[in-house]
Design a protein around this nucleic acid. Structure first.
Length: 193
DNA sequence: GCTTTGATGCACT
DNA sequence: GTGCATCAAAGCG
């Protein structure tokens, strides 16, 4: 597998979000390697009222204004982490939220982290779930995605464009009208259709 | 410095 | 389908 380079991320969030389904997110930890195919992603860009960066740079969203190819991990609702890949040129304030994975490596480890009574589809389905399964926390905030232990790789297999569905985003209270969400058709790990 | 609320998930009805 | 856990940062004053 080929690790995606900076040029991949140095594009608009919408373009990157379109290309991410089918790519593989990998996290190597002391416990072992966990990875999964990205099956759902959403684009956020400055000017979008729902984007964290829409009101300029703050302490929380500073990674979104940094160089592309970094992680932006933030804590939400007291319990949950969400993982984003920073895209676009520096100071643009763009990112792509990874919402769901299909487990590949380290499934046993994910089960151990999550509890064994969990339905398989919920193991990495949903932004909070995939972060818990891959052990992504605040510590991975601003980490580079261009090299191990945390990176996104290209399997060489492209997802046919007719299998990628474009729709509106989830959980947005403002500006729901735009079609910025991309997911793989009929994949059981996608939370909402 | 105090209040509000959110790019959620889960247990429960 | 509804409610709740739980907290950091934004927003306000």
């Amino acid at each position: 597998m080929r690790i995606l380079n900076e040029d991949f991320y140095r594009r608009s969030a919408v373009e990157v979000a379109w290309d991410l389904p089918g790519k593989v997110l990998v996290h190597q930890t002391e416990e072992g390697v966990t990875s999964g195919m990205i099956v759902e992603a959403e684009a956020y860009y400055q000017g979008d009222p729902a984007c964290h960066a829409t009101r300029g740079k703050t302490k929380r969203n500073a990674p979104m204004f940094g160089p592309p190819g970094r992680a932006y991990v933030y804590f939400i609702y007291g319990n949950h982490f969400c993982f984003n890949a920073v895209t676009g040129e520096e100071e643009r304030g763009e990112a792509v939220l990874v919402r769901a994975l299909e487990p590949l490596e380290g499934v046993e480890l994910m089960w151990r982290r999550r509890g064994s009574d969990r339905p398989y589809r919920k193991l990495t389905g949903g932004p909070g779930n995939l972060c818990a399964a891959l052990a992504i926390t605040r510590e991975q905030n601003e980490a580079s995605l261009l090299e191990p232990p945390l990176y996104i790789a290209d399997t060489g297999k492209e997802v046919p464009s007719e299998e990628v569905v474009v729709t509106t985003r989830v959980g947005i209270s403002r500006g729901e009208e735009e079609l910025l969400r991309f997911y793989i058709k009929d994949n059981p790990h996608v939370s909402r259709r």
